[in-house]
Design a protein around this nucleic acid. Structure first.
Length: 1067
RNA sequence: GGGCGGUUAGCUCAGUUGGUUAGAGCGCCUGCCUUACAAGCAGGAUGUCCGGGGUUCGAGUCCCUGACCGCCCA
């Protein structure tokens, strides 16, 4: 193993190399399955939400990809056939805009060059600039199968789009009609409801008087006042509506009005839709420019007058306003009304204004001829798929959101007036004016045979093609016996990981289209028989007409063996939805705010692994991530910690090699094993590893990336580095005289635990672990990558005894360290300690003497029946520990103890309350009652110890090691010692005899200078403390014996202690 | 207007089906360059679990209610 690793971990030095290696070696390529190979239940298939070809990687992508990569690497290492499919989306509007902008710089317009040339130009653009985001993905180490990369305009996927359109058309689920759609005047295309984003906007509500006409069509004296937020649309008014029950207007029923500006005569219509409370209770009706008005118009047979063109300029219908922009027209119309005295009021009004998702232009509802999908039948299936549990959402609440949307769904406008995209396969006949929709470009009208047909200029909504991806990437619609291996092996996919922002755009559409089209694909022989009893949709299209007119006596059709159930039709079995990545202040990242964090920049700064780990550790389902680079700094430090642990290990492996000691490589690659007689820390670290492994596997199953990451962090840093590495230093003795077998065993456990921990961490930090894993094997790895090794699994029982025993030892060490600190023992100095413990633990602590000495900087451990008087003491339920005190801050100690006592008393009171409650005893489960009793006993013991310790404290005035100047007032009792005094104190302490007899406390300066009453109190209380001593009578003997025990005996005693602790644990 | 979330330490967040004395990271305070790591080590302080009511032997957790914040849809 190389021990020439640099001292500090430098991610940039290794990451590019491995990222490139993974791609070059095609490590994550999933070969095409064998024809007729059985469906592999163990496959794990995941589709990358295709980023736009125009896209650049942002933090949202990185979160998304990190989550997918962690799961995919994890599943792959667990032995599942993992396939992660990458690709990009042609992104109709976005890409077209990008190229148009480029053209504009050259002073060109797409209209000048014509459709074909423009599309060609977009393809060229795509070739040059498209897919940059996938290169960024490669750099981040995403373990995708690059051999299967797709683009939504690839031939294969375009065929799917075309067939899907034709099928839906044939099933009467696609229609063309003139409806109000959201129109973007800038993009000059219709957009779907979802592509409109609403912004609250401070606008106005104009109140305008429309003159009421007499029967002879002359103006009467009366006016009807309407309220509107878009006065320019009045050019297209065809009526004014009032509520039929609105008494204010009853007398006007049947009257006509003169539309100002235009002077058109329009009726007053009665409609329930009108809200009497809003505005004046009278609304102008403009069917061509408002969806609600459109509905009113339909109900009352009103004409539609389109007053705006595709750029939102006024059309010829607007008379003298023709050619004006909508907002200029608005101003002039208001001015005209004002002049005529018809403007009643202008009120401030806050309302939601729709903007184009792409270009933020205010959307204009506009009547136009578009293609729609009759969505209800598809939605019904998609609802059933989720309700019947074939698709599981995480977090669960998104199921509600999904169903709520799906149950209130509107028909989907799928046509776009763009040039870049999948062209709608529909041809208009100029002779019979009928439409021909065909799989292959027709040469003549399918209705009248005329050759004068022209293809629709519209393209399809981008989401139509991406909604088909789960079926189309695996070959649909060409699922032939020879050509279906992919589909059989990989459909349905296992999981979809995505953001909530495209839940409706994409997830919902995939479910609808996936369920709809996959159910047509026969399952192969031998696959499960379908569960549902409905007829195949091909035979009975669930369109309104079909279902409404279905004969009542229809007997259930026999189920075809090859019919696919809904469970097998879904595009994915699970959906994991992550939240938003925000900045450190929880603000949404946006270019205008300038708070966008570029993942690539941040990766350069901290390394990919650290950024990934940051995202993973914060990815708690359902919570937005406030990305904070401080956190990333912490995880870079974590990577460095592991790096240095590796350096330490490699250094020792090299030393061992010189001494002829080697680790058998055969022990690597699986879960480390230790014998029951192995030293405590070996049994313990393996048990800790097992616990961590179990927890990580469980957490990842539940998408708890945060729990998984934190578990590994705690294990690696907290258990492995802070404790185990420090302890193992005791065993790495390569001298001539050392026990070679013991050293070998220690080294073997060290290396094998480290190697397993690397595998555990690998999905989270693939680069670092790859580098170190290769180093562990010194280049002779059993696989090309750690990503192809096996993920640790916890199959055997966890050694609870080791965990409990080590926990006690750790507590002891922590108490000693705290004592040292409180007593002012210098960091470097060694101190003797006395330990007094229950007999059952003596053997354990004796066994741990060396560990205690090293980790707590102890010169000598003395096991005693009771802590000598005058020592600074700490207590724990299982032990007491004391050290000679060179100085003690009595005030601080008193405060600490008083606080402890209050805490214990509170705990005891709470427990008493519970235990004294018959209801609790009767109803609470036994383990809770037992646990509480045990806790009560322990707390009581701790309380007694603390009270005794408090009573034994010398009075504050006298609590000085050395004779100082006059005692300070109690308030300033902070003990101050000069450096000189400190070192004196240490010397004194070191030269002190360890055995301090209880009867000889005279060395304590406290007693020498104590005031009388306090002194008495102290000397009276001290024996009291020993009366209620926690240690058993035989403790001293045991401890005496223990000190002389041979190793063998110690082991026996250790077994006894183990038994005891295990019982405790079981309880 | 309809729907869905959230409020826990200075900050960012965990806290499983109600069950023992509510946790982590960062930050903060104190002391250490103890040779794997100062991107480090050790010790320490910190909570009205948003307010009110209820259910229960027992509520951060369940129910009702109020306040505030956020998201989605119309």
């Amino acid at each position: 193993m190389p021990n020439d690793l640099p001292k500090a971990y430098d991610p940039t030095a290794i990451e590019d190399h491995w990222a490139e290696y993974w791609v070059r070696e095609k490590l994550f390529t999933q070969p095409p399955p064998e024809k007729d190979a059985p469906k592999d239940a163990d496959s794990f298939v995941i589709l990358l939400p295709p980023p736009n070809v125009t896209g650049r990687l942002h933090m949202g992508h990185m979160l998304n990809q990190t989550e997918m990569d962690i799961l995919t690497r994890w599943q792959r290492m667990r032995g599942r056939k993992a396939l992660w499919l990458p690709g990009t989306d042609h992104a109709g509007i976005a890409t077209q805009m990008m190229v148009e902008r480029q053209l504009a710089e050259e002073g060109k317009k797409r209209q000048d060059m014509g459709r074909d040339a423009f599309v060609k130009r977009v393809w060229e653009w795509k070739k040059h600039y498209g897919g940059a985001i996938l290169d960024q993905m490669k750099r981040l180490g995403a373990s995708v199968d690059w051999s299967r990369e797709y683009f939504t305009m690839d031939d294969k996927l375009s065929v799917a789009v075309r067939v899907a359109f034709v099928k839906l058309y044939e099933q009467d689920l696609i229609y063309r009609g003139a409806y109000i759609v959201n129109w973007c005047p800038r993009c000059q295309t219709a957009i779907s409801d979802l592509e409109v984003v609403y912004d609250e906007h401070q606008g106005h509500l104009w109140e305008i008087k429309y003159p009421v006409l007499n029967d002879d069509r002359t103006d009467s004296d009366e006016f009807l006042t309407i309220a509107t937020t878009r006065p320019e649309t009045m050019l297209g008014d065809v009526a004014v509506a009032v509520h039929p029950d609105d008494e204010r207007y009853t007398h006007l029923h049947g009257k006509r009005l003169r539309l100002p500006v235009v002077n058109r005569i329009i009726p007053i219509v009665l409609d329930d839709y009108v809200s009497r409370e809003f505005g004046t209770g009278a609304v102008k009706v403009t069917p061509a420019h408002d969806p609600n008005d459109f509905a009113i118009g339909q109900r009352h047979n009103l004409p539609t007058i389109n007053v705006m063109d595709e750029t939102a300029k006024i059309t010829g219908e607007g008379g003298r306003y023709k050619g004006l922009d909508r907002y200029i027209a608005r101003k002039r119309i208001i001015a005209e009304l004002e002049q005529e005295g018809l403007l009643v009021a202008v009120k401030d009004h806050v309302h939601n204004v729709g903007h184009c998702d792409r270009c933020k232009t205010v959307v204009e509802p506009r009547l136009s001829l578009q293609w729609f999908i009759k969505i209800q039948p598809l939605a019904d299936k998609a609802i059933a798929a989720v309700k019947e549990g074939h698709i599981k959402f995480t977090p669960e609440m998104y199921e509600k959101t999904y169903l709520n949307w799906m149950e209130n769904i509107h028909d989907w406008c799928i046509s776009r007036q763009l040039w870049w995209g999948h062209r709608i396969p529909a041809w208009e006949c100029s002779k019979c004016h009928k439409t021909t929709v065909a799989r292959k470009d027709p040469t003549q009208c399918s209705h009248c045979g005329a050759e004068e047909i022209t293809q629709s200029t519209d393209v399809l909504d981008t989401w139509f093609s991406s909604g088909l991806l789960p079926v189309s990437v695996f070959g649909w619609p060409n699922i032939t016996p020879e050509n279906r291996a992919d589909f059989d092996a990989f459909y349905p996919t296992s999981l979809l990981v995505t953001g909530f922002d495209i839940l409706f755009f994409w997830v919902a559409r995939m479910i609808m289209l996936g369920c709809w089209f996959a159910s047509d694909v026969p399952t192969r022989d031998g696959s499960p028989v379908p569960l549902i009893q409905t007829a195949p949709p091909v035979e009975a299209p669930a369109g309104d007409a079909a279902s409404a007119e279905a004969p009542v006596d229809e007997t259930p059709k026999p189920i075809k063996v090859d019919q696919r159930s809904l469970a097998q039709s879904v595009p994915f079995r699970e959906v994991y939805i992550h939240a938003l990545v925000r900045d450190a202040n929880r603000e949404k990242m946006s270019k205008t705010k300038g708070n966008v964090i570029d993942p690539i920049e941040i990766v350069k700064q901290y390394g990919t692994d650290a950024v990934r780990f940051t995202l993973a550790s914060m990815a708690s389902p359902g919570t937005d991530i406030a990305f904070n680079t401080e956190r990333t700094e912490g995880y870079r430090a974590f990577a460095n910690k592991i790096w240095n642990a590796a350096r330490f290990i490699f250094m020792n492996v090299d030393k061992a090699a010189e001494a002829g000691i080697k680790v058998d490589p055969a022990v690597l690659g699986s879960m480390p094993k230790v014998s029951a007689s192995a030293p405590l820390e070996e049994r313990w670290i393996v048990a800790e590893l097992q616990s961590a492994v179990a927890k990580v596997n469980e957490s990842l199953t539940n998408y708890r990336y945060d729990d998984a990451a934190n578990t590994i962090y705690q294990f690696f840093w907290g258990s492995f580095c802070d404790w185990y590495l420090e302890i193992v230093k005791l065993r790495l003795d390569f001298s001539e005289t050392a026990d070679k077998a013991a050293t070998t065993a220690a080294l073997t456990t060290l290396v094998s635990v480290f190697e397993a921990a690397l595998r555990l961490l690998s999905p989270f930090m693939p680069f670092l672990t790859e580098e170190l894993w290769k180093a562990v094997y010194n280049g002779e790895t059993p696989a090309k990558s750690i990503a192809l090794s096996r993920y640790p699994q916890c199959a055997t029982a966890i050694d609870k005894d080791a965990l409990n025993s080590m926990d006690l030892v750790q507590k002891l060490i922590v108490e000693i360290r705290a004592l040292r600190k409180d007593s002012g023992v210098e960091e470097k100095a060694l101190t003797p300690v006395e330990i007094c413990t229950d007999s059952i633990y003596v053997a354990l602590f004796v066994q741990a003497d060396a560990i205690v000495e090293r980790l707590a900087r102890v010169s000598e451990v003395k096991h005693v029946a009771q802590i000598s008087l005058g020592l600074a003491k700490r207590h724990h339920a299982a032990f007491e520990v004391g050290i000679p005190k060179p100085q003690i801050n009595v005030a601080a100690e008193r405060e600490r103890l008083t606080k402890d006592i209050a805490k214990y008393e509170k705990g005891i009171a709470a427990a008493d309350r519970q235990l004294g409650n018959e209801g609790f005893l009767a109803k609470a489960p036994a383990h809770v009652v037992e646990g509480l009793k045990k806790q009560h006993a322990e707390t009581t013991l701790l309380l007694e110890k603390a009270q005794a310790a408090l009573a034994a404290l010398p009075p504050e005035e006298t609590a000085k090691v050395n004779e100082g100047p006059a005692a300070k007032p109690a308030a300033e009792q902070e003990v101050e010692t000069t450096e000189e005094q400190k070192s004196e104190a240490v010397e004194e302490q070191l030269s002190e005899e360890l055995e301090v007899k209880a009867s000889e406390p005279s060395e304590e300066p406290a007693n020498e200078t104590a005031e009388e009453p306090a002194s008495e109190a102290a000397s009276e209380e001290a024996p009291a403390a020993s009366e209620e001593k926690p240690c058993e009578a035989e403790c001293e003997e045991v401890s005496e014996a223990a000190n002389e025990q041979t190793n063998e005996a110690a082991e026996e005693a250790g077994e006894a202690a183990k038994e005891q602790t295990s019982k405790t644990a079981e309880e």
